[in-house]
Design a protein around this nucleic acid. Structure first.
Length: 218
DNA sequence: GACCAGGCACATC
DNA sequence: GATGTGCATGGT
């Protein structure tokens, strides 16, 4: 079986086992984007509280976020951890969209996907995973998101060497799968799901993992 | 109390 | 280019 066939087979196994994951949680494009920043190295539970705080005060809008000071924003998102840094990151994003896209998410997502990705990566605080989450979940455009679970699950099952780079990993998925944002969305979510259940940091043993049996044939 | 969570920037070698 | 560190709350 080729590596691409294995990538496709793993998707089918995970989908069969876990079903649709309903990602990305949220109601609006801007909410997805804020979630993408807030969830950096942070559990979604802690992010939800921060987003709910913003929602309660009706602040999920570019205009409202512009009016907040960084310190005010930081206090509202406290529960998500790294709150001073994340407040700056959100402010940086708001400045970015004001200066480049006239405050319009629609304008931003009309941009060529590769140009947009590069532009996002130039914002201080937006790295490859966050940029790709913004494009995939916020813009519903076909780019594959790699995260810590993707590395762990694939390397532990012997599909890639541990030192594989983000871009290499992303190419592997994108070369193997149909160019479909819905599949990319679901696959990323499924990898997080199986990672949380069976591929934790401290437990190299994959008991009960749907990919457990004969890892070299999955 | 230690460890971990849907990363990233920056310093140093 | 690899490796180490700060950022920080909340759950197990």
């Amino acid at each position: 079986m080729t590596i691409s066939e294995r990538i496709n087979k793993i998707y089918r196994l995970l989908y069969k086992r876990y079903g649709p994951q309903g990602w990305w949680p949220g109601d609006t494009q801007l909410e997805y984007i804020l979630g993408a920043i807030l969830t950096q190295n942070t559990s979604w539970k802690n992010v939800e509280k921060a987003i709910n705080n913003l929602k309660k005060s009706n602040l999920i809008s570019i205009d409202k976020l512009k009016l907040l000071t960084t310190d005010e924003l930081a206090q509202l998102i406290r529960s998500s951890g790294y709150y001073n840094q994340k407040a700056l990151k959100i402010k940086n994003f708001v400045t970015f969209i004001t200066e480049n896209y006239n405050d319009s998410l629609e304008n931003m997502f009309d941009e060529d996907i590769h140009v947009l990705r590069n532009n996002l990566l130039n914002i201080k605080g937006i790295g490859p995973e966050t940029a790709d989450c913004i494009i995939l979940y916020g813009g519903n455009k076909a780019i594959f998101v790699i995260d810590t679970y993707t590395y762990r699950v694939l390397s532990r099952h012997g599909l890639v060497p541990e030192q594989t780079s983000y871009n290499e990993m992303q190419e592997l998925f994108m070369d193997s799968l149909n160019d479909d944002p819905q599949i990319f969305n679901e696959y990323h979510a499924l990898l997080v799901k199986v990672g949380k259940e069976h591929c934790k940091k401290r437990s190299p043993i994959c008991a009960g993992c749907p990919l457990e049996k004969d890892p070299h044939t999955v």
